[in-house]
Design a binder for these strands. Structure first.
Lengths: 209, 209
DNA sequence: GAGCTTATTGATCAAGTGATCAACTGGCTC
DNA sequence: GAGCCAGTTGATCACTTGATCAATAAGCTC
């Protein structure tokens, strides 16, 4: 046998922990939150289940952390994208387009899993609450900013944020089961938002005809 | 020992099958669809897991059947209740009140479980599709009836039915996690329905002030 | 290059899952 | 009351899960 360094072994603790976290996210996206297993992660990385257990003593906590990581990463990315837009109306339009766009089913299924599994995993249930609050806070800030700028008028930004998020989540849940694409239902969210914000019809419609 | 007939044994096959189905429904409502287990059912009835397996050779199929039974029973009950109402507007109002009323979380959690578990259980996934179609068909019929009676105007009853169901499902999903009560969000559905049907504002509001 | 810190392994446990099958027995029929 | 059909049991298999622990070995420091 040659001296092939076939396996790069013995990574740093920090590196390995990051690798485990990343692998858990991949598994959650592809196969669901409850496909996260000591053995599924270990097999994917090429190590022993005991090693995963060493870095993540509680699998339940790892599931909760993984969900929070996926949901939080999406919110962070959207926050970044929207911050470049000049007006709140454009930001709201982009938000609707993104959250009801194609290739969203991966994140949506993770949310569906979280709502379901959260009943058996207390840490996950708490994380779901945290992420929902974070989304609502983000949308409230967006609505208040637009209101302060005089772009539109909002009576109760907190309640409206919950309503818009509920509609979006409902549409996406249906899309996962039925057509795999929620774009056809964007008009519903646009109409509700325009109506509640006192915007003229079509104000949130896509730019190009 | 006395001759106490402590256990009523040896039921009819039909009786036992019904008992198993009923027990599976109870477990699904209280502890979720994936708490349905040969042993959980058997323990609750007081028989051997093998007996449950005898009547239900496939647990996956039993889970799918149980979901269909719960969802179908609710639709049947609501259909019955609404059929007594004289107008379609009143029926729509009652539908919204019921589907976003208290004590709905049990059924909502079963739906959440079904959306999540359906990815691993093909039979369940198909049943979810069937039940969603049944609900949509029911609502389409309600909308078309009201339109034919001249109570309101509906452009695309099929699309509107999906939209209203998506909103209701989204609100209920949020309610399961957050406040446990979706009544505060009823106005959203009412407003959307009134707007889309050309009804005056408040037409779907509760009768009493 | 000795020694030590720490990443990593292999083995193993207890619990829980669906499923199968021969054996038992309750209760009805003739 | 003998016999038989069908409901029921107990034992058991193969598999998956999370978790623990002593033992190993890699790689850095001195």
């Amino acid at each position: 046998m040659s001296t092939l360094p076939s396996r790069t072994k013995r990574r740093t603790g920090v590196e390995r922990a990051a690798e485990i976290a990343r692998t858990a996210r991949e598994i959650a996206r592809y196969d669901g939150l409850d496909a996260i297993t000591l053995r599924s992660i270990a097999a994917r990385i090429g190590v022993t289940p005991a090693l995963v257990s060493h870095y993540e003593p509680s699998t339940e906590a790892l599931v909760a952390k993984t969900f929070g990581s996926i949901a939080g990463a999406e919110l962070a990315e959207i926050t970044r994208e929207l911050s470049a837009l000049p007006s709140s109306v454009e930001a709201l339009r982009a938000l609707i387009d993104t959250l009801l766009g194609p290739d969203r089913s991966a994140v949506t299924t993770v949310w569906l899993d979280a709502w379901s599994v959260g009943r058996r995993n207390i840490a996950l249930a708490r994380e779901v609450g945290v992420q929902m609050d974070a989304w609502q806070a983000f949308l409230v800030a967006l609505l208040n900013r637009g209101s302060a700028r005089g772009e539109f008028a909002v009576a109760d930004s907190g309640a409206l944020a919950w309503q818009l998020l509920a509609i979006i989540d409902g549409i996406n849940a249906h899309a996962v089961v039925r057509y795999g694409d929620a774009r056809g239902q964007r008009d519903l969210v646009r109409t509700v938002a325009e109506h509640e914000l006192g915007l003229p019809a079509g104000a949130l419609a896509p730019a190009s005809a």
